[in-house]
Amino acid sequence: MNRRLLRYLAFPLVMCGFGLAAILGFQGLEAAWLTLVLLLLEVSLSFDNAVVNARVLDRLTPGQQSFFLTWGLVIPVFGVRFLGPLLMVAIAGQVGLGEALDAALRHPNEYRKLLEIAEPRILAFGGMFLLMVFFHYFFDDAKTLHWWQALERRLSAAGRIEALEVAIALIILVALVFVAPVGLRGDLMVSGVLGVVLQLLTTSLADGFDSGPQMAVRSGIASLIYLELLDASFSLDGTIGAFAITDNIGLIMVGLGLGALFIRSLTLMLSRERALDHLIYLEHGAHYAIGALGLVMLAGIPLAAHHIHVPEWLTGLIGVLLLAIALWDSLRQRRASS
């Protein structure tokens, strides 16, 4: 069993060794160390993403799964970690895309300043999207398996109230806008509402299609879009936090890209080994970690206005601890039932 599970990690381990060796050879020991730190940052922030991805991946056709696990890697690595912030920087900094690209490649300090301008809008979008993922999972009156019984039974019962999760999300967004600096309020409202709408749209399309071959394909496409948006939301915080470690765009892309490769392999392992069917609380822990990450991203906006920054290692540690507790309880439950 252990040897079979290790096969899933063989490719990312080889690529990690190759990538770190290349960085070491061309840019030296310090650059290789920074790349390794970025890799670990990405894995710690996105491990819970792999758990949720594995469950959604089960809904896709083999062809769609193959696309997500291969070409789907290009979208979060180059689209989210490079082109996405580049576009946001251009819009928020009111500069052309070419000027933003030039700053990213040739003037990293200037690009970092532009990214700081765009950061609140990025965090508002990603935070609201992830918060809606958390609400969608727990505000479900059909949910029968509960981990933290006292809390989850109440959340599940509250799911009978139509659109309750949307109302709570919008209340949180309004509160965030109220405490944010005046000049940011309009942009934060637009970014936050966009995150809510996209989460609702993708999950509604995936859930709403009927069973049938043609409908299954459409549902799979909606799920595929949802996976990429979920990946994007997880990656936004890590991409911004990476600039606290280094302003070298090349190192950031290599480190976070290698980390994303590990997440893809973990997603594949969890899906194909049906691990979530045996580790019954792992999905719960992942969604608690998602909710925590969403709240931290949103809280980072008013905190940044007071020059307070929540370190990325702390965010990652919260997620890892929640998953570790869920894993422990899952294993204990499995031993008790066997």
Rank of each mutant, 00 (worst) to 15 (best):
M88V: 08
R4W: 05
L331M: 13
G19N: 10
A124T: 02
F134M: 13
L145M: 13
L45F: 05
L184V: 07
L13Y: 04
A242E: 03
L236R: 00
L205S: 04
A242W: 10
S265G: 02
G98S: 04
I290T: 07
V310H: 03
L314I: 14
P108R: 12
E116L: 15
G93Y: 11
V80D: 00
W313F: 10
A104W: 10
I225N: 08
A305E: 02
A175G: 12
N2R: 09
A150I: 14
Y226N: 05
H309E: 01
V193F: 07
L327K: 10
L155I: 14
I301P: 02
H136A: 11
P311D: 02
Q199A: 09
N109K: 12
L327C: 05
L83I: 15
D247Y: 12
F67A: 07
Y137E: 03
L69W: 10
I122F: 10
M215S: 14
R154I: 08
V80K: 00
G19I: 11
E119D: 03
R153D: 06
L73I: 13
D140Y: 13
V43L: 14
Q214M: 09
V80G: 01
A90C: 03
H278Q: 04
F139H: 04
G96W: 07
A124Q: 01
I245C: 03
G126I: 08
L173F: 07
G220P: 11
L323C: 01
F125Q: 02
V254L: 12
S235P: 02
V14P: 02
G98A: 11
N53G: 00
T246P: 08
W71Y: 13
I318V: 15
A90V: 13
G255P: 03
T203P: 00
G220D: 05
L251I: 11
A22N: 05
A50G: 05
F138K: 00
G257D: 09
A157V: 05
L9R: 09
L258Q: 04
Y8G: 06
A157P: 06
S211T: 12
L303H: 01
L205E: 07
L293F: 03
I240M: 05
A326V: 00
L20W: 13
F234D: 01
T144F: 00
T315A: 08
L151R: 13
L188T: 05
T203F: 01
T35A: 13
S265Q: 14
M297P: 00
D329I: 03
L314C: 03
W148R: 15
I172A: 08
E110T: 13
D329C: 01
I168V: 15
N2A: 11
H136R: 06
L184P: 01
F209Y: 15
V14A: 15
A31L: 06
